[in-house]
Structure formats: C-alpha cells, structure tokens
C-alpha cells in the first residue's frame, strides 16, 4: 500500500491501521498527533483507524521552539 507520510512516499505491506504505521516507523504513539487526509485522528482510535491506498498522513510532535 502506498501512503504519503509527512510529504514522503511510504510503501508498506504491513501498515493497516495508524498504530501499525507508527510501529513500522518506530514512532511512539504517546508523543505525537496524527492527521489523515487533513482530519485529526484521536489517539484512542489509532489501533482501529484503517488506512487506505493514497492516504495523506501527517505525524507531528513537539520540537524546540520559542
């Protein structure tokens, strides 16, 4: 399945849910926020929200800033 994650093409055979994707990327779910096709997905739904071919996903976290 081809996804666009943070502006980059990401191919995966394993990722089906957001949680699967985060695990595949080695990202801890507790510290991020996720948007799929411009809609924010609640953390509680990461394990059940299914991703589809061509989905645009943004995964953000907190970085240093003023």
């Amino acid at each position: 399945m081809k996804l666009i994650v943070n502006g980059e093409l990401f191919e995966t055979s394993k990722s089906e849910t957001i949680l699967d994707l985060l695990n595949a990327l080695g990202i801890e779910p507790g510290r991020v926020a996720v948007e799929v096709n411009l809609t924010i997905v609640k953390k509680a739904d990461y394990a059940t929200f299914r991703l589809h071919e061509g989905d645009g996903i943004e995964v953000v976290n907190f970085v240093g800033g003023g």
Binding site: V5, A33, V60, N61, F62, V63, G64, G66
Partner: peptide, 8 residues
Amino acid sequence: VAVRRVNI
C-alpha cells in the same frame, strides 16, 4: 515548544 513533522 513548536509543532513539527516527525522526521521519518
């Protein structure tokens, strides 16, 4: 803090 993409 700022909010930015995780560098994947």
